[in-house]
Amino acid sequence: MNNNVIKVGMAEYKTGKENDVLITLGLGSCVGIVLYDKFRKIGGMAHIMLPSSKEIKNNSNKAKFADTALEELLKELIKMGASKSSLIAKIAGGAQMFNISIKSNTLNIGKRNVIAVKEKLSEYRIAIKGEDVLGNHGRTIEFNCNNGELSIKTIGKGKKII
């Protein structure tokens, strides 16, 4: 069986159906969010960069922010036939790549991203079924829309599945 690989770039979101694999490479402080309806095998992945579209003026790309990206992704999945009540979420990323103490606001953006994503998911009442967040290393994530597995690859630390 051949899986169809769909790449999700920085500040993008994509959706997939049975036999699709959603993949995002080299997540750092960004957060990768997967929403999945296992009964209909419909999944979506967003690669967000910033916690909130409300904090800044330059916010035309909705996929860039936790709040608007989740809103759009959810709309898209429901349009494809997913049921909101059967959606689950998995999240990864939000690392702090460099340790510098000044201007902790910007540098701890990873943590702020994770918090923003969790808040938004709880607002939508979508349960988080797996997470691999924070730390200080990059991640490549791959979501299999067939079985709902999210595999996470890190440099020098190997692979794990949540």
């Binding site: 080299g26 750092g28 790549m97």
Partner: peptide
């Protein structure tokens, strides 16, 4: 930091992405 280019570059991308 020694890591994937994507992860490391997300730092300036995010920082600059705000403005």
């Amino acid at each position: 930091s020694i890591d994937m280019a994507g992860s490391i570059l997300s730092v300036p991308a995010i920082e600059y992405g705000q403005i």
